[in-house]
Design a protein around this nucleic acid. Sequence first.
RNA 1: GGGCGAUUAGCUCAGUUGGUUAGAGCGUCACAUUGACAUUGUGAAGGUCAGAGGUUCGAAUCCUCUAUCGCCCACCA
Length: 725
Amino acid sequence: MAEHQQHVVQEGFEGPYDAKLHEGRIYQKWMDSGFFNPDNLPFAPNAEPYIVYMPLPNVTGTLHMGHALDNTLQDITVRYHRMKGRKALWLPGTDHAGIATQFVVEKDLRKQNVSRFEIGRERFIEKVWEWKGQYGNLILEQLKRLGCSADWSRTRFTMDPEYAIDVQKAFIHYYEKKLLYRDFRTVNWCPRCGTSLSELELEYKEEESKLWYIKYSDEVIVATTRPETMLGDTAVAVNPHDERFSHLVGTTVKLPIVGREIPIVADELIDPKFGTGMVKVTPAHDGNDFEIGRRHKLPLIQVIDERGKMKFTLPEYEGLKAAEAREKIVAELEKEGRIVKVEPYPHNVAICYRCSSVIEPIPSMQWFLKMRELADVAMSTVQSGKTKIHPERFEKPYFDWLTNIRDWTVSRQIWWGHRIPVWFCKNTPIADNPNFLTQNEFVVSLEKPSTCPKCGTCEMEQSPDVLDTWFSSALWPFAGLSESDKKKYYPGHTLITARDILNLWVARMVYSGIEFMGEAPFQNVLIHGTIMTKEGKRMSKSLGTGIDPLKYIDEYGADVARFAVVWQATGQDIRWDETAVVGGRKFTNKIWNATKFVLSNVSAEVSERYDSARILEGATDADKKILEELKTLKVSVGNDIESFEFSKALHDIYEFFWHSFCDAYLEVSKEQMKDESKKESTEEVLYYVLLESLKTMHPFIPFITEVIYERLPKKENNTLLITQW
RNA sequence: GGGCGAUUAGCUCAGUUGGUUAGAGCGUCACAUUGACAUUGUGAAGGUCAGAGGUUCGAAUCCUCUAUCGCCCACCA
């Protein structure tokens, strides 16, 4: 009876679905199509764009679960909107990641027993570029394996020359707008790496330290964990409301060992309950003391240098390491009977995140960006709803950070980064410099001035400072675009990222976009959950708690990895559950086998015959039911993607395809097809539901859906990438 | 110290505006099955929804408190 019928099932459907046989080829096919580039899409010329700026992975990075989640969600929205007929641009790039990259390359050099100081700055920068050329695209290749449909032809690196120009221009813009200024500040200095570190680059180590109670005078006893810094004390401070000491405020005390007279000041920062309620103030070597010093106009005396050794304050201490100086000073104080008490004191010391050296706060001249005005812009953009943060609860930390913001130290003393466009005169010191650190006059300019406008004779020298990496990544939504693209592909629509960079990065992109482009860079910010271990611990390479998503891609394919990630992406933090991978594997296999069934039961010309408009004619109840459910599914999945309910969408797809379509309808169809009067219409329904399911699933599991779609008899084009959703 | 989130089946999690027997995946058990699929099908067991109190005709859902866990920010002289 059925022998005469030509079925369309071909070879290649034997056995379970094996992603390894297909994914490489499919990805290449997509690349060859050129459709990742919105300019190549065969849509109406005036089709609306849909733009997603990829959160820049560090060049030093390798794919981890966070990337897998982040980029899968982005890929879903991009693929969805592309299928909806929008000119979808997903802009990829990598971040030069100043200190992280410098550290990796230094480590490389160290293997050859070379330090960066031996080869010098210029040669070192060359080495970094070499390293970048060799390893810098690793993470992008890994994103391709995940199936990411970013426009790789537009890939940008934050140190590309075009990008660098925008960074320099931004610096000059802020300078001319008088938002940039220079000032001293205590920086977190790593004596071993020879660089200052940001707060983020610090780690803390519990240390069994001591708290020394030192008698400065009969009435003045201070408690400190760092006696060696007393050489640089310029005051003693008490709380203004502390009546025990109010009679002392305004008087002076003689600093032991050094013999200097220092004032006693009152400052709110002092906790009367800590120690004796009296604190030694060393503005040069402590952030809080620095602020107190500022408020009371105290001098700044630096006693520890950039290598962590004592400066020249007193001859017997000069050149000693800070720790040695501590012992010597304590011994000296003891001899003088000034140590009143020593308490054991467990204490968190800041250490370098790279080399674990103890951080030394030292004063140095830095560039600061005034934040109040810019922060207000970032706030009002979200307050007015021009940019929405999802889920809404993340608005609070965003507003809190911006409300309490302090000026941003944008300069860094490392070698790898955007050199600031500041040129120093060699001959003209700045008049009335408030510190012993000498500084010369400078100009701010994109190019090196041919003649020095200050002295008229010298060869000007560029400042050795580079910019904080975030200064350049804040410009990503427009600096990552060519001049012509800036008109076409700005502003974007959706930014998808993890919560830890909401302030460091997202807020800075918002005001930068408005400052330089006149418009917020995106309408929506989606903050997704963080992937943790099943035990609820943070995934971290150094702790060995990380799970490599490439493991799943290698073993089961990108679709399964994507499925597992999205299945769990409910919005809350995710305790990674391996069984979701099992689910993904089973599901892709289910799709594969259902396809095998459909294709071996429908005749080849079904694609010519079926017509979605009249498919309900003569339909059975089962036909109507499945078609109705399909319609409902498509609507809800579309809505869910647009409202970032990715996990819900995937669960609904799963439920529909497995239970409604496979378990229920496929079984009914077997009976219906035995009845000649229903055979043709049943085939049409089978074919139609399969085809529509593939489209609906494509943004989530793009590879297997494409593999099957290719083999379907059809009238339409041969890739789901641009098939109408 | 301040803020945010979580606590629902053995495990990982859903549960829209409070409304009939609280759901899924994975796991477990029983049975079935060589014509899409054993990476299967049918069915079953398993939950006083962290605890206490309150609002309500009605609470997993709203309010208060408590406990435990996690995250973020600040501080650590």
